[in-house]
Design a protein around this nucleic acid. Structure first.
Length: 592
RNA sequence: GGGGGCGUGGUGUAGUGGUUAACACGCCGGCCUGUCAAGCCGGAGAUCGCGGGUUCGACCCCCGUCGCUCCCGCCA
């Protein structure tokens, strides 16, 4: 080793020892006859003193040194002079007085400062990712990520899970997301696909009798990116045999609590995760991934306004549509400009307009463009139902159930943000259960699965498949944290007749099914155990635990929103020879 | 595919239809033996993302384009 100690480990008890450190020059402070600098490695920083009076040779070397030079320093650990401790550094009580300094490698001045957490344009950070990764923020985040994954492996290992790798080159299926394709050289015109998730393979491992499987699995989806979506990402993919829904929920809950306690810098809001039905979630929050850190819940006031003079409301209620509202405390003084911002948001979410009432903080007078349509009794009833106080703002939406949900969910999140209720100072997990088996809308006369084809209907709902498929609930579950979906899974259908019935409802012909899932369906004929699983998204969880706003901050080498890598400049063109071998002809792009 | 935001020395920002394009950090040189965001003195460094247009004159206004980003569509 080129060093005897790490730069973060020297303490008072090392005083008097001669040590050798190696690392990067963090910052130099040149006093003339004495030079200080902090030597940095992944472990931390240690102040090095180079005194011309002690070692002229070391002093001469250091006089040429610039920031980010890679040095090896040998010297004696000493206590700093009285009153010169640096309480900001764990090593701040000591310093190393250099006897010799070796330049292991010089360094160009970096395009941005490594030792300061200043905002730098993200494209520059991505181009010089290896320098960005030197900075404290990403080192911290990747350490959190490591600790989380280490915890997961240990936790599942202790509980009898086997980590099994599955192929990256697999089969394309037209279902779900767009696949990344890999051309076959050996089989002209044929392609592998990179897995969107190891879904099929883990179910086959259950058929194979492995009972408890997991994998830290890389997944690929060729879809447009978001702050929480990258073309390749990592899931904790897992599956268990002979389990029921609550076995999986209990296990994952214990895993999450342990992982957060081990790795997170953001604490849990609570340890017992609430379990909320899909129906309750959309009714209270307007979404199936509610941010439950704050209230502002949706409240139905249809009955109170059904016979009001405001035609929009009364007509909507008569048509069987709801009138719902949220109450934003302290926002009653919103200006015309602020209200039109909210209205724009509401319209963006599908609303035709935005009704509102504001209660004056002192006079308690209610103002708003629609107030004149309501009797005093109606206004009082509404404010009481909403639990609105003087100074509050009531935002009202009336439309179809779906639009009302979307609009009020959007407004609720906006008001949560404006009121500072979404700051990342705690993690509020909630289970969403009892999803409908099918989506509400029909696709070409057939039912569309809300999760995937292998999701198990709730046992007691199976008879409903023949009479009222939309009423069928399933053993699908999502784990949501601070409004982000962080895991999703289900109990699977292991029985062929039930599988066949679902496929018929979806409109899958036997031929299609055999072509795409033949291996699965055949496998299920050889004794498939009841099984189920879940797949927590590692990137999203780590981002939440690190308090980061996007998952790029917790990935070593992420891609841009255009799915490019600015460091290596990929994707890039390839040699004609490579294309020829793969039997690929590139079409001229329309733009060119 | 659509919509919004951003683009000014190496970095982060300020800026106005006519300026010598400003400030901080960084960088270079000098001074300094107890600094730790060291300090002090001096200096270099910008065709204001790119292209076109309007104008006597554009960093500023308009159009296009490229890059980054957020959102919708898409995607568990």
């Amino acid at each position: 080793m080129l060093k005897t100690h790490n730069c973060g480990e020297l303490r008072r008890e090392h005083v008097g020892q001669t040590v050798t450190l190696a690392g990067w020059v963090n910052r130099r402070r040149d006093m003339g006859g004495v030079v200080f600098f902090d030597l940095r490695d992944r472990n931390g920083k240690t102040q090095v003193v180079v005194n011309s009076g002690r070692s002229q040779e070391a002093f001469d070397v250091v006089s040429q040194v610039q920031r980010e030079y890679v040095l090896q320093v040998t010297g004696e650990v000493g206590l700093r002079p009285e009153g010169q401790d640096n309480p900001d550094l764990p090593t701040g009580e000591i310093e190393v007085t250099a006897d010799s300094v070796t330049i292991l490698n010089p360094a160009k001045t970096p395009p941005f400062l490594i030792d300061r957490d200043e905002v730098v344009d993200e494209s520059l950070r991505l181009k010089y990712r290896y320098l960005d990764l030197r900075r404290e923020r990403l080192q911290r985040n990747l350490t959190i990520r490591h600790k989380a994954i280490k915890f997961i492996r240990d936790f599942l290992d202790e509980r009898g899970f086997l980590e099994i790798e599955t192929p990256i080159l697999f089969k394309s299926t037209p279902e779900g997301a767009r696949d990344y394709l890999v051309p076959s050289r050996v089989h002209p015109g044929k392609f592998y696909a990179l897995p969107q998730s190891p879904q099929q393979l883990k179910q086959l491992l259950m058929v194979a009798g492995y009972e408890r499987y997991f994998q830290i699995a890389r997944c690929f989806r060729d879809e447009d990116l978001r702050a929480d979506r990258q073309p390749e990402f990592t899931q904790l993919d897992m599956e268990m045999s002979f389990v029921e829904r609550d076995d999986i929920l209990d296990l994952i809950e214990e895993l999450m609590v342990g992982m957060v306690k081990t790795a997170s810098i953001v604490p849990l809001a609570y340890e017992k995760f609430p379990r909320m039905s899909f129906a309750e979630a959309v009714s209270r929050y307007g979404t199936d991934r509610p941010d439950v850190r704050f209230g502002l819940e949706l409240t139905d006031i249809s009955d109170l306004v059904a016979d009001s003079a405001f035609r929009v409301f009364s007509a909507n209620v008569a048509a069987g549509n709801p009138v719902k509202a949220i109450c934003a405390p302290g926002c009653g003084g919103y200006s015309r400009k602020q209200m039109s911002e909210l209205e724009a948001l509401a319209k963006d979410a599908g609303a035709k307009g935005l009704a509102w009432m504001a209660i004056h903080p002192e006079t308690e007078q209610i103002r708003g463009p629609i107030v004149k349509f309501f009797s005093v009794e109606q206004l009082i009833a509404i404010t009481e139902r909403m639990d609105a106080k003087p100074g509050d703002l009531i935002l009202i939406s009336s439309d179809t159930e779906l639009v009302v949900r979307e609009v009020l969910h959007t407004l609720r999140m906006e008001m949560g943000k404006r009121l500072g209720l979404t700051d990342t100072n705690s993690l509020a997990f909630v289970w969403i259960i009892d999803f409908p088996l099918f989506e509400e809308t029909l696709e070409d006369g057939h039912y569309a699965p809300s999760h995937h084809m292998f999701t198990m209907p709730k046992r007691e709902h199976i008879p409903l498949l023949d009479t009222d498929p939309h009423a069928v609930l399933s053993d699908q579950y999502d784990l949501v944290c601070n409004g982000f979906e962080v895991a999703g899974g289900s109990i699977r259908i292991a029985e062929r007749p039930l599988q066949r019935k679902i496929m018929e409802l979806i409109g899958f012909s036997m031929e299609e099914a055999m072509e795409q899932f033949g291996h699965m369906l055949e496998a299920f004929e050889y004794g498939a155990p009841p099984h189920g699983g879940i797949a927590p998204g590692i990137d999203r969880l780590v981002a939440l635990m690190a308090g980061e706003p996007n998952i790029r901050e917790v990935m070593a080498f992420p891609k841009t929103a255009q799915a490019t890598d600015l460091m290596s400049d990929s994707p890039s063109e390839v040699a004609q020879k490579q294309l020829d071998e793969l039997h690929i002809a590139v079409k001229e792009s329309k733009k060119a």
